Computed example of a mutant assay.
Amino acid sequence: MSDLVAGLGVALVLEGLLWALAPDLARRIVAQIAGLANSRIQMAAVVAVAFGVLLVWLVRG
């Protein structure tokens, strides 16, 4: 359980860095994503989840 909480903390730090360091860029990225088709967003999300699972699997063995 502590690994899950630590992982969520790292995710929040990484997400927050973009907004803290470059809020205008973050707004442009969000606007571009809003213009994409749902199928493209879903495919990117599936790829991100798969990559995350693979990364955890490789690191944690």
Rank of each mutant, 00 (worst) to 15 (best):
35 G>M: 01
34 A>I: 01
16 G>K: 08
49 V>E: 07
47 V>L: 15
27 R>P: 00
29 I>D: 03
34 A>G: 08
42 Q>D: 14
47 V>A: 15
10 V>S: 10
23 P>K: 11
10 V>G: 04
31 A>Y: 01
61 G>H: 11
51 F>H: 10
24 D>G: 06
59 V>R: 13
42 Q>H: 08
60 R>W: 10
22 A>M: 03
45 A>Q: 13
55 L>K: 15
52 G>V: 01
35 G>T: 03
61 G>L: 10
28 R>C: 00
22 A>S: 09
50 A>K: 11
27 R>S: 02
1 M>S: 15
3 D>L: 07
10 V>H: 08
29 I>K: 09
14 L>C: 03
56 V>L: 05
2 S>R: 13
59 V>H: 08
20 A>R: 14
60 R>G: 09
21 L>Q: 10
43 M>N: 14
25 L>W: 06
8 L>H: 08
3 D>W: 07
36 L>P: 03
40 R>A: 12
15 E>W: 00
9 G>A: 05
21 L>T: 10
37 A>F: 02
23 P>F: 00
34 A>T: 04
9 G>V: 03
1 M>G: 15
11 A>P: 01
41 I>D: 05
35 G>A: 03
28 R>F: 00
6 A>H: 07
35 G>V: 02
45 A>M: 11
58 L>Y: 06
57 W>Y: 13
48 A>F: 04
34 A>P: 02
51 F>A: 15
59 V>M: 06
36 L>F: 12
4 L>Y: 07
4 L>D: 12
61 G>F: 07
45 A>T: 13
52 G>L: 00
58 L>P: 02
56 V>T: 13
10 V>N: 10
11 A>T: 04
56 V>C: 02
61 G>V: 06
40 R>P: 01
50 A>F: 14
59 V>D: 05
19 W>K: 10
33 I>D: 02
25 L>A: 09
23 P>Q: 07
44 A>F: 08
10 V>Q: 10
50 A>D: 12
19 W>C: 01
20 A>I: 00
35 G>F: 01
3 D>K: 11
30 V>R: 13
23 P>A: 00
36 L>Q: 15
44 A>C: 08
56 V>F: 05
56 V>K: 13
20 A>W: 08
56 V>G: 02
14 L>S: 08
25 L>T: 13
16 G>Y: 07
8 L>M: 15
55 L>E: 15
30 V>F: 06
46 V>Y: 15
14 L>V: 09
28 R>Q: 07
9 G>Q: 09
47 V>M: 14
12 L>V: 04
29 I>G: 03
56 V>E: 08
56 V>R: 13
